[in-house]
Amino acid sequence: MNRDIQLIVIGGSAGSLQVIFKIFKYIPAEFPVPFLIVLHRNVNFESALDELLSVKSNLKVKEVEEKETIESGYIYLCPADYHVLIEKDKTFALDYSEKIHHSRPSIDVVFKSASATFHEHLVGILLSGANADGGDGLKIIKDNGGLTIVQDPDESEVSYMPHHALQKFKADFVLESGKIGRFIFDLNARA
């Protein structure tokens, strides 16, 4: 494997939070690639996701702000009730347009936009969920030369979302939740 990875995007819905915590156990503070996480969340539920993740990971955690430049050392979280897009100059843009798959933020929107900027330098990971979101976007990541990982539906808490994505295209890797973190760590070590 010889690719220069510049961003890792993780999309998840129902049943994905514990998987995310597992992944970041393996990622050290000096990991050179930034992460962007897009989770379906309830707008009316004041989520403490950033605080929880700060405790459980070695990286700095922050919510995406518009016009902010993506930097390594960070886990960026998509804010509730906005779509997140990425400009060609690698800054974030926010968008309050129609929900996609009943979701804002939508995983498809983030995956597609990240792929248009990062092409083969992007890794897309789709986790557990009860929604059809993410599959189209992940396929585009693969079409543009990026690396795609889907959580194994057989051991996902809710298999619908990973299963739905795998019906659309053949992901590069289908991994159990406990193996994704180590895989990402190794991927970078090999690069």
């Binding site: 897009l85 400009e87 060609k88 843009a93």
Partner: peptide, 9 residues
């Protein structure tokens, strides 16, 4: 206008 959003529209 922000290009990412406008392109998507």
């Amino acid at each position: 206008y922000s290009k990412a959003s406008l392109t998507r529209r």
